[in-house]
């Protein structure tokens, strides 16, 4: 049952990442990997909201497995993030490689904190 929840979430989350990345990458003309940045920050915000909802008792552990471990886990990615950073550095775009790391961590953490605070304000 728990595995099934994780799988159901991931089956939606992974294609969402792929399609969002494509849609974002089509709309800009820079070397910065805005697509991966977008899915990672959005995923952090959703997981923050969910984590806050679970902490206040508004969401069950089943919802956590489906939307947290499954959907948000598959929606966000560390492997593509670090590979894109490596490619930027190898291609001589050192500034953008560093900017990608700093921006992703700062925005992802910010989104996580905002999500938790919003959930606590909503359901506490």
């Amino acid at each position: 049952m728990n595995w099934l929840l994780v799988i159901c979430g991931a089956v939606v989350g992974a294609p969402m990442r792929y399609l969002t990345d494509r849609a974002v990458q089509k709309r800009h003309d820079t070397v910065f990997p805005w697509g991966t940045f977008t899915v990672n920050v959005v995923g952090c915000l959703i997981l923050g909201l969910l984590s806050g909802a679970v902490a206040t008792g508004a969401a069950s552990s089943h919802v956590q497995l489906l939307l947290g471990t499954g959907l948000c886990g598959a929606l966000t990615t560390y492997s593509t993030f670090s590979y894109e950073t490596l490619r930027l550095a190898e291609d001589g775009a050192r500034f953008f490689a560093a900017a990608n790391v700093v921006a992703s961590v700062v925005a992802g953490l910010g989104a996580a904190f905002v999500g938790v605070s919003c959930a606590e304000a909503l359901w506490a």
């Binding site: 995923g43 959703i46 984590s51 560390y78």
Partner: peptide, 27 residues
């Protein structure tokens, strides 16, 4: 590449849990 790179590895690794782990430790 869509199956293994985007799918398996993208689904295996996670940025959201990483951020929330930090948030929970700090909180």
């Amino acid at each position: 590449r869509p199956f293994f790179g985007t799918g398996v590895l993208g689904g295996f690794t996670t940025f959201s849990t990483y951020a929330l782990d930090i948030q929970k430790l700090v909180a």
